[in-house]
Amino acid sequence: MSDLLLRNEPDCAGFAGEGAGVAIRLAEPMARYSLRARDAQVLEDLIGLAVPRAIGATLGDMACLGPDGWLLCASVGTVLPSGSDLPVAITDVSERAVRLLVEGPRAGEVLMAGCPIDLDRFAVGRATRTVFETVEIVVWRLRDDAFAVEVWRSFAPWLRLALVHAAG
């Protein structure tokens, strides 16, 4: 990618209110791929990475979000083969979403302001597609007190504001 040009990120100023128990910030850019395959083994053979098999499971940078769907969120520069002629589909979606990091003892509580799933009982290392009110998100529990929230770019400012409101 050109060094001459500036990236432009959605308006998502960081938040770490005094005593709020939660901090919200935009993560650094990442490479993201949507991976689809009828047979996970074919995918593994192609990309040379282990692929989690159960929906909701993660393995390294890869989350299994559906019976034939995975999301890879890796460092910028990660390039996957195209998988031509194989029964797989690999699509670069690096810029489709951004990642909000929600961290702190109140992280789960703040997310549950608009996310209807029980994040108290959502184990570290799990990831799932769900919603925050009307906006689709992917929630990925990184640590006990840290969640990554993947959200499509144009929804990010709204989601960030909603989370800050909830943290208020």
């Binding site: 432009n8 959605p10 302001a113 608009g114 009110e133 009307t134 906006v135 770019r153 144009s154 929804f155 400012p157 709204w158 989601l159 504001l161 909603a162 409101h165 909830a166």
Partner: peptide, 18 residues
């Protein structure tokens, strides 16, 4: 609830909106 004013519903802006 919080669905009021700027949070009523998402206002989606293109990358060139600014």
């Amino acid at each position: 609830g919080h669905a009021k004013d700027a949070l009523f519903q998402p206002l989606r802006k293109s990358p060139i909106d600014g």
